[in-house]
Amino acid sequence: MIEIAGLHKKFGEHVVLRGITATIARGEVVCVIGPSGSGKSTLLRCINGLEHWHAGSVRIDGVPVLPHDRSIRTVRAAVGMVFQRFNLFPHRSALENVVEGPIFVKREPRAAAEARGRALLARVGLAGREAARPEQLSGGQQQRVAIARALAMQPKVILFDEPTSALDPELVGDVLGVMRALADDGMTMLVVTHEIAFAREVADRVLFLDGGVIVEEGAARQMLGAPREPRTREFLHRVLHPI
């Protein structure tokens, strides 16, 4: 469903992506791991056109993603995104955050959107917190509202950009639990993460990025259990045994 072909991207002189080619099938959960600065977040942000690139192409269900074209709005409405720092709208309640897209982008009737919004908040474990402002919620709760906001658009795929990296350790589990439930429901997900355990348990496939190229990819358990490439082995060793 997502086809990335020969993607090149640079910031000024600094080359971030050096020819990324990958496909993600419908219903697949793919984790992208790699050291910071390896280009994994940039790759994710190209898929919904938050970044533009210098060569290559991204297609979703065969439709090209064109970051500077009006059509990008339709693409983004069908591609959910969850950010590292949540990026909830601070001037709106949890429920208002969730129904913002359905009501103002998709022009759904408010009553229907709110009913679905409440159900989504319940699904991420936040029933009863509809009226809470983001500042009244913990980081883990905010991130779950952000997931509900992405789900409210009924996306074909959700992109997660280090969704647990800004959380206190004890709050990580709740967010990963919601993501695992989504995966079990068959949602197509592309997850940039440092949570190797999550990748091993939940992902179908893992891409290891370093220096703007995919160094290794494979089935999650197999690749994380027995990486072929020395760079992958070294990275995993450092992440799993920090001291």
Binding site: R73, A77, M81, F83, N87, F89, G101, V105, A150
Partner: peptide, 19 residues
């Protein structure tokens, strides 16, 4: 990040500004 969040749910420039 606020603008990116708005864009990520499909908002255009005018809607991002207004909402």
């Amino acid at each position: 990040g606020q603008i990116e969040a708005a864009q990520s749910i499909g908002m255009g420039w005018a809607l991002t500004m207004r909402r």
